[in-house]
Design a binder for these strands. Structure first.
Lengths: 233, 233
DNA sequence: TAGTGGTCTAGACCACTCT
DNA sequence: GAGTGGTCTAGACCACTAC
């Protein structure tokens, strides 16, 4: 209605959202069929389909063949956190990024991690600890294990100039991942590197990634005190 | 290739992902045009379009008119946390859910919150504190402010049997929201309700929601010690 | 078995943007 | 100006599922 003369899937979506918000279609109620809506809006059924399909993916409506489309009663909303490279997170805040390598070694995998990743005893990993600073103030402490079997080239990477997160992103373009967020007390090491008294509550993110089922890396990223991980949805 | 004879958008998507993972299309490289891919896969351009559009939404490829489609170099991956009602989170873990109201009052909005929500001094809010238990063990402490102007019916809700989160979901079917996660030390109140020593690190989620631009509620949800918020992507 | 959503097609026009 | 993705159409067939 604004610039184009045809009804776009976006127009349909906006109107559907409006009707849900205005309780014209209350929670639990049945929407008209795609065919009926297409008639009403004067567009093709495919257009209505795309509009409704996206709303279903967002968890706002529930669609079932034969039964039809219903407004969800207790929507399970999805919060999307963008997980970028630390450097980008920092530069987005208009702060200067600095990286420092703390430790690098090649070790056999620790038992607890081997169990977690389903890797045999004696599997070799590269262990890297490093710091990320924003305007020269501690931002994040990174403690990482990289599976040499999956990423053989890691043996030749020394990580003195650039963090393993950026390096890995270039080596392994696309992975599955699992992440978890917890609150942990600062231990001696974290306390030192993040310049916080011991036992200060810190936000910690753990991430495991796989490439086609093969474990790539496990990492613990601990943020400076007071860090807020924020998003809109 | 499995059951259907036509090439589905899913087939196209899987093959594109495979080629990116196998470095047939390395990071930064240009993909064939939709038309060329449609020819190769023997399907309509719309099918290729849907496959690629979804990958672009996931941040795996980058599409620009005229320039074409490229494999993203440093993918900004998105972690999706499902934010459901606490009761569902608990019941999904096969635990018994129990709710307890701790406090309910009608107050003028605190200055710090008024500033945050862009509400005038003296605006009335309902303040609710409550506890959610899993198998009778503290799971989450909820501290909430509800804007009476946006949800007038809240005045008549006493929240003695059911948490304000569930009530609000029924009243306000669809909202915008902003959430933030932090690590906080247990203060006297949290320590008491969550059965944790003072200063124990706790994971806290803050959420603000709006309905069509009008603030609905602000809530702080603090989890029991050791809680992990987890997801795959 | 019939109704509803899920998907694909072949074609068309449009909008952005690089040259 | 021209190439590429973005979207819409009208129709078709399929797949699931409530009846």
């Amino acid at each position: 209605m604004t610039t184009s003369r045809k009804t776009s899937f976006q127009d349909v979506q906006d109107e559907v959202i409006r009707r849900i918000q205005d309780r014209i279609w209350p929670q639990g109620s049945l929407l008209p069929t795609e065919f009926e809506l297409a008639e009403e809006f004067g567009c093709a059924r495919a257009t209505v389909n795309r509009a409704l399909r996206e709303l279903a993916e967002k968890g706002i409506i529930d669609r079932k063949r034969k039964s039809g489309t219903r407004v969800v009663t207790a929507p399970v909303k999805q919060a999307v956190f963008e997980i970028a490279v630390v450097r980008h997170t920092i530069e987005e805040r208009n702060a200067d990024y600095r990286y420092a390598l703390v430790h690098r070694s090649v070790d056999p995998i620790p038992a607890w991690l081997g169990a977690r990743l389903d890797l045999p005893q004696g599997a070799q990993v590269v262990r890297v600890k490093c710091m990320h600073y924003a305007d020269n103030r501690p931002f994040q402490f990174e403690d990482r294990w990289i599976n040499i079997a999956t990423v053989p080239d890691v043996v030749g990477a020394d990580f003195s100039d650039r963090g393993p997160n950026e390096w890995l992103l270039e080596q392994v373009p696309f992975t599955d991942a699992e992440i978890a967020m917890t609150a942990v007390p600062a231990d001696a090491q974290l306390s030192e590197f993040l310049a916080a008294p011991e036992n200060t509550p810190l936000l910690q993110m753990e991430r495991t990634t796989w490439l086609k089922g093969a474990p790539v890396t496990f990492v613990r990223m601990t943020y400076h005190p007071g860090y807020r991980m924020q998003t809109r949805y």
